[in-house]
């Protein structure tokens, strides 16, 4: 992942603290390696409990798919953060997860982002960790 986008995701996570934040990232996949070239913030539309949950509106998802098509990129996944919790998918994350996508989770403390980990569903709809470089 380009450092610029990792810095952007971390800044987003710190700006939104103590609420959850989220965004999409785009790029390409080649030989099972995903290259992130763009990350874009989106609005967490969760109406209650924004500290523990995030929700992406259908319209924002539709826009993300169209943006990827227009730019000739692949929509690779979604990042979000866990305020005061580890960068491990929650039960809710699992319930709303889609196959193939990478889910980058940032663990954020008052002092800043502590851990960044990425996860992907396997064929049994269980999360497996991906390596971030």
């Amino acid at each position: 992942m380009n450092d610029e986008y990792m810095v952007g995701m971390k800044a987003h996570g710190e700006d939104a603290f103590p609420n959850e934040c989220c965004g999409f990232f785009y790029g390409e996949e080649k030989d099972d390696v995903r290259w992130v070239t763009i990350a874009k913030r989106i609005i967490n539309v969760k109406e209650d409990d924004k500290r523990r949950r995030f929700e992406i509106s259908g319209k924002n998802y539709l826009r993300a798919e169209r943006f990827a098509t227009q730019e000739g990129l692949t929509l690779l996944g979604i990042y979000h953060r866990h305020p005061l919790h580890p960068a491990i998918p929650s039960k809710h994350d699992l319930e709303v997860a889609m196959p193939w996508f990478s889910y980058i989770i940032l663990s954020v403390e008052p002092s800043g982002v502590h851990h960044v980990r990425s996860w992907q569903l396997n064929e049994s709809r269980e999360f497996e960790e991906e390596t971030i470089k």
Partner: peptide
């Protein structure tokens, strides 16, 4: 149907 990206792995990469 225009398939969203995560489901294209099941349609041989086809969006449509």
């Amino acid at each position: 149907l225009i398939n969203p990206t995560p489901l294209r792995k099941f349609t041989n990469g086809n969006a449509v």
